[in-house]
Design a protein around this nucleic acid. Structure first.
Lengths: 111, 111
DNA sequence: CCCATTGTTCAAGTTTATTGAACTATTGAA
DNA sequence: TTCAATAGTTCAATAAACTTGAACAATGGG
């Protein structure tokens, strides 16, 4: 909040960084929520309630630095959204494939 | 070597586990090598030469436990191969999408 | 059997993640 | 403006995971 959010330009976004950010169950779930329907979510609604605020903040920072999300201060809260279009420019089909797989996982593999 | 290799059945393979295993640059590179052409590679040829043997062994163990690779003792060496078909059964298009993105990355984004 | 080769296991040091407490920023009300 | 509440961030300390060298195990050739 005190320091402005740093969003890496898409050119500097790396696959390793994306996979690293998505490898954590908590962060994958956040991305799932951001990718499903709603375009913008604040940190509290996107992260698990049982988790410490500092940990939430840390995870959003990693997602942001990986280039996965864009964070904007909207009043007292921070609205986060997926940078799907930009990422698709560099890695076409990557995020959709992972979100699709996450959906399979979430449903236990059945239809 | 002493204990037999443990390969999880495909039903117990999770997306989180796959992403976690692929998030490491070293392991992603290993998977790239295994996925590109050659069907079987031993640990030394698939892992970076600059890396300690124990670290290589550790990375292959993680890839194996994630369900990404199959390891077979062939004489004095261990032959590793990608379990692409099985993974495709549970997560269609996942590994190809990541390998494709890894290829883009390796080439710097240009054609 | 003896030795070289290929990996594994173990213990120790280094790095990274998680958390509570304190702090910053914005909003609304008085 | 001042006070209180809300939403996140930053910091310091603890817990977990990564990396590595040394010792060990297993196979194959002489």
């Amino acid at each position: 909040m005190q320091r402005p959010f740093v969003h890496p330009p898409i050119e500097t976004v790396t696959l390793e960084g994306l996979l690293y950010a998505l490898a954590d169950p908590v962060r994958l779930e956040i991305i799932r929520k951001l990718g499903t329907g709603t375009c913008g979510m604040n940190c509290q609604s996107a992260a698990p309630v049982t988790m410490a605020k500092s940990t939430q903040s840390h995870h959003f920072q990693i997602l942001r630095e990986a280039g996965l999300i864009k964070s904007e201060r909207r009043g007292v809260e921070v609205v986060n959204s997926l940078r799907c279009d930009e990422i698709a420019t560099k890695f076409p089909g990557l995020v959709p494939a992972i979100l699709k797989a996450a959906d399979v996982k979430g449903r236990g593999g059945a239809a």
